[in-house]
Amino acid sequence: MSIITKAIASADREARYLSPGELRTIRDFYNGGENRLRIATTLIENRKEIVERGSLKFWECCPDTPSNSGNRTYRASCLRDQDWYIRLIAYTVIVGDVEPLKDIGIVGVKEMYESLEIPLRNWVECIRCLKEVTLDLLSREDAAEVTPYFDCLIQGMTP
């Protein structure tokens, strides 16, 4: 749920108008929209590089993983999943909220990885590697905007 949707839902539940503080928050959200879209565009345009460099970094740290076993299906699945998470991060940057990560990227996925016997600690390390590569592409200010979303994923999946 975006900041705007949350503010409106809260006011509606209480049968009231938006408060001056809520209106300022919405204004600030709109004012930051151009920056969020620019960051999301950077993620989208660099997703292949992020995934390639992040997976290489991960396989250096964790060489004995199913995705690095020589099995093309495992490798392709790993790269696909990494790309999917970069896409989720881009979504969360745009809406300025961790809800898409929690709703889409953590709850069911954690159970899926466990059922496939993929060690969650490996998955967490992989996301850390993607985070490092991504932050290297961004300015300090943009990196500060993106970091909480990667951290939310890491915390949500840490065993």
Rank of each mutant, 00 (worst) to 15 (best):
L120P: 06
T5R: 08
I154C: 05
K6N: 13
N122S: 12
L56E: 15
Y85C: 01
L116H: 13
K57C: 02
T41L: 08
I106A: 05
F58Y: 15
T92D: 01
A11T: 07
Y149F: 14
T73H: 08
K6S: 13
I50T: 06
R72K: 11
E141W: 00
I89N: 05
D142H: 06
I26D: 02
L130P: 07
V107R: 15
G70T: 04
V133A: 02
D97M: 05
P63C: 03
T158V: 01
E45L: 14
G54W: 05
T134Q: 00
G70M: 04
D151P: 08
Y85L: 07
L120W: 07
M1S: 13
L153C: 05
L135C: 10
W84G: 08
R47N: 03
A76V: 04
E49F: 12
I94N: 08
A40M: 10
P100D: 02
T5I: 05
I104A: 04
E114F: 03
Y74F: 15
E52D: 14
R36T: 03
R53G: 01
E34I: 09
A76L: 02
G156S: 08
R87H: 08
R38P: 08
R75H: 13
M157W: 04
V109C: 02
E114P: 00
E125S: 12
L130N: 14
A7V: 03
N71L: 08
A40E: 06
L135P: 05
K131S: 12
I86E: 02
T65G: 01
A143F: 02
D97N: 15
Q155T: 13
L137V: 04
N68K: 07
A9I: 01
I154D: 00
T5S: 07
P100C: 11
I127M: 07
E145I: 12
R16G: 01
I50H: 03
G32E: 08
M112W: 05
I3N: 04
R80Q: 02
V98A: 14
Y113G: 10
Y113C: 12
V93W: 00
V95T: 12
Y74S: 09
L137P: 01
D81Q: 04
W59L: 05
D83K: 07
A9K: 14
I104P: 00
P119G: 07
A90Q: 05
L43T: 07
L153W: 00
L101W: 02
R38D: 08
V124A: 00
L120F: 10
I3T: 12
Y149W: 03
C61N: 08
W123C: 09
R13S: 15
M1Y: 11
Q155G: 07
